[in-house]
């Protein structure tokens, strides 16, 4: 196993899938000659050529629409949205077309389509370029929404997404590209729709995913020094949601904190908390606590922006609150 970055893991998954299956191709803004805005597809254009690494106009509806059409013909397009904020320009095609066509036409249309989109805040890009709208997309039946938090999961889940027969929104976090982790070489596939325990613990269940896995892990390490052992459940896939590992953990710890980067209202945490109460109410020793983004459009100013995004300290405080009231 090699220790590589998230960027390298995603790039590796794409490269291997394109080598394996000629029906896999990439399209998006600056994916080809430029090499990808986040350098994920660096070197692809020279190796695979412009037909398979297709630079597009800045036209997100056409990018996703064309990916849907190509998928209907049996190809396996991987469409890249430079940021998930641009998904709003293709929102109709993602949630109103891709998510519905298999069902609405009685099962005859099949869309093996992957949309890679870069999300998250914390880089002083201002309100329009810093959002974490994952929960909005996870709201729609028919769409699969995946958001990995480790390099290994990024590789394995992207391979699974490319091989899936269903449309998958694959959300990458812009500030996770540099993190490193052990990643199995070769054909490593992680099944979609499986939550996992990333860190075992007995005292509090911490439910999280994507970037907030990193924040939660740092919090867990500090809490461990104080004798508090949190169990981290990483959702990895937001839809279809695998709630069982969350419930199993909660029944053991009887306390939960949910950590997400998106806004609290109508968010991932709202869903998880409701599911915990529905399925394990009698096990609760304290109210479930949510840590999420402050309810503001993210500002440019670095200090203000950081104050709005969940921090290690926010997570630690929430854990102590559910433990001690």
């Amino acid at each position: 196993m090699a220790r590589i970055t998230m960027r390298e893991a995603i790039s590796q998954a794409l490269w291997e899938e394109m080598e394996r299956d000629p029906s896999v191709f990439i399209l998006g803004e600056e994916v080809g000659v430029w090499g990808g805005t986040y350098a994920v597809t660096k070197g692809f254009y020279d190796h695979f050529g412009g037909e398979r690494v297709r630079d597009t106009p800045i036209a997100e509806a056409a990018i996703i629409g064309a990916a849907i059409g190509a998928a209907l013909t049996g190809l396996r397009p991987v469409a890249e949205l430079m940021t998930i904020n641009f998904a709003f320009s293709s929102f109709d095609h993602i949630v109103n077309q891709a998510a519905k066509m298999h069902y609405m036409f009685g099962g005859q249309m099949v869309l093996p389509l992957v949309i890679r989109a870069v999300g998250g805040g914390g880089r002083q890009l201002g309100a329009t370029h810093s959002q974490t709208p994952d929960a909005i997309f996870a709201h729609f039946p028919g769409l699969t929404v995946v958001a990995p938090g480790t390099p290994a999961d990024a590789k394995g889940l992207l391979k699974a997404a490319i091989r899936s027969q269903d449309p998958v929104l694959f959300i990458e976090h812009a500030t996770l590209y540099q993190i490193r982790g052990e990643v199995p070489e070769g054909d490593y596939v992680v099944p979609i729709g499986k939550s996992t325990v990333q860190r075992p613990g007995r005292d509090v269940t911490l439910v999280t995913y994507s970037k907030m896995l990193e924040i939660s892990t740092k919090a867990a390490e500090q809490l461990s020094k104080e004798g508090i052992e949190v169990e981290i459940v990483d959702l990895r896939t937001l839809r279809p949601l695998d709630i069982e590992p969350v419930i199993a953990s909660f029944k053991k710890t009887n306390r939960a904190v949910i950590v997400e980067e998106g806004w609290k209202s109508y968010g991932v945490g709202s869903e998880i908390a409701a599911r915990i109460y529905e399925e394990a109410f009698d096990y609760a020793d304290a109210p479930v606590k949510r840590v999420a983004q402050k309810e503001v459009p993210l500002p440019y100013n670095r200090t203000l922006e950081q104050s709005a995004i969940p921090s290690v300290e926010d997570v630690i405080a929430a854990v102590k609150e559910v433990l001690h009231g």
Binding site: A62, A67, I68, G69, A70, L72, T73, D92, Q97, M109
Partner: peptide, 28 residues
């Protein structure tokens, strides 16, 4: 789809980008 009739689309104009993709599939 067995008769190459790809719908019937209810959002005005939304099937045009999809048509681009159908043609892209054939060109590919």
């Amino acid at each position: 789809v067995s008769k190459n009739f790809w719908g019937g689309h209810a959002i005005v104009g939304a099937h045009l980008p999809i048509a681009t993709g159908l043609a892209l599939g054939d060109a590919y």
